[in-house]
């Protein structure tokens, strides 16, 4: 019963525990389950970062061919995580601030914080500086879908808003209402 790591076609290195069938079963023992949940959270975050996935839905388990297939299923051992179990894991992640329900007021899908909003804020600010767009008014679209692909490409608007609001608290961003939506202007770090 030697478990080994496995590299998926997308180049992700799956942990050895992913090859153990019990990993896909919710454990009644709370201690064991806590460990299992922690491993699942870590796996989800790592995979999300690897594939730059932001939204995890319970439905991703039920339909094959989703972005999360490589971790939610293990065809080599004929196991998949059950929706209820995934939902519990999602709940645990939300509780640990590793994810947030997106949209709010439901529990079927989460926005995975493989970077925390504060980290995203820093990433955003660094990107603005590196691209020399300080004091320039940018639309959200300019940020999420820049001509040159960045770390922020594809970031959900809600997460972007959070990052911008974090920056605005330190006076580094300013939200401006423009004709066709919202714009943001990044300011230099106040000394």
């Amino acid at each position: 019963m030697s478990l080994s790591t496995y590299t998926t076609t997308s180049g992700f290195l799956l942990p050895s525990i992913h090859s153990a069938p019990p990993f896909f079963t919710e454990q009644p023992n709370p201690t064991t389950q806590a460990t299992a949940t922690a491993q699942w959270s870590r796996l989800i975050l790592a995979y999300a970062r690897h594939k730059k996935l932001f939204i995890l839905r319970v439905e991703d388990v039920e339909t094959s061919g989703s972005d999360w297939d490589e971790i939610l299923r293990n065809t080599r051992i004929n196991r998949k995580i059950l929706p209820g179990y995934l939902s519990n894991i999602m709940e645990a992640m939300v509780a640990q601030n590793l994810a947030v329900y997106e949209p709010v007021k439901q529990t079927r899908s989460v926005l995975v914080y493989w970077r925390l909003p504060e980290e995203w804020a820093e990433v955003l600010y660094d990107w603005v500086i590196s691209t020399g767009q300080l004091n320039t008014i940018l639309t959200f679209y300019d940020i999420t879908d820049p001509p040159l692909e960045s770390l922020l490409t594809g970031i959900p608007i809600s997460l972007l808003r959070k990052a911008i609001s974090i920056l605005s608290k330190t006076g580094r961003s300013q939200t401006i209402a423009i004709a066709d939506g919202e714009g943001v202007r990044f300011l230099a770090r106040s000394k």
């Binding site: 019990p22 454990q27 009644p28 064991t32 299992a36 004929n78 179990y85």
Partner: peptide, 19 residues
Amino acid sequence: AEQDGGVCRDDSSSAIVGG
């Protein structure tokens, strides 16, 4: 034993095929 964390379970209901 499971309560004490000695063992863990693998439920075949989480199988992709069958189960």
